[in-house]
Computed example of a mutant assay.
Amino acid sequence: MESAFTGSSALDERNRAYQSAVAIIGLQVGYEQGPWTGRLFVQNLTNKRRVNGLIFDNLAFGRDGNYYGPIDSPRIVGAEVSMSF
Score class of each variant (00 low, 15 high):
A79M: 06
Q33V: 01
R39E: 13
S9C: 00
M1H: 12
N66E: 04
D72M: 02
S9T: 02
I25S: 15
A17G: 01
V81S: 07
L27A: 14
F41D: 01
V29M: 14
G30A: 11
R39Q: 15
R49L: 06
F5Y: 14
N66L: 08
S8K: 13
N44Y: 00
N15T: 03
N15M: 06
V22D: 05
V51C: 11
L11M: 09
F5G: 13
P70F: 03
Q43S: 10
S8A: 11
N52I: 02
D64W: 06
E32I: 02
V29Q: 12
I24S: 15
S82T: 01
I25Q: 15
A4R: 10
E13W: 00
S84L: 07
G30V: 00
G38F: 02
P74L: 00
V81R: 03
P35F: 02
T37D: 12
G30Q: 05
L40K: 12
G53K: 08
G78R: 04
I76Y: 09
G62K: 07
E32W: 04
R14G: 08
Y68G: 06
A4N: 12
S3M: 09
P35A: 14
G53E: 05
T46R: 15
G34M: 05
M83A: 12
D64E: 08
F85I: 06
V77R: 10
G26D: 09
S84M: 05
I24C: 08
G38T: 13
G65R: 09
E2V: 00
N47S: 12
R14Q: 14
V42A: 15
Q43N: 15
M83L: 03
F5P: 06
L27P: 14
L45N: 13
G53W: 05
D57G: 14
Q19V: 01
V77G: 14
I55K: 05
S8G: 06
R14S: 13
R49S: 11
A79S: 09
Y31K: 14
V22C: 04
T6M: 13
P74I: 00
I55S: 07
S82H: 01
Q19M: 00
E2G: 10
F61A: 15
R63L: 09
A79D: 04
R75H: 04
Q33E: 03
L45R: 09
A10M: 04
T37E: 08
Q43A: 07
V51D: 12
G7E: 12
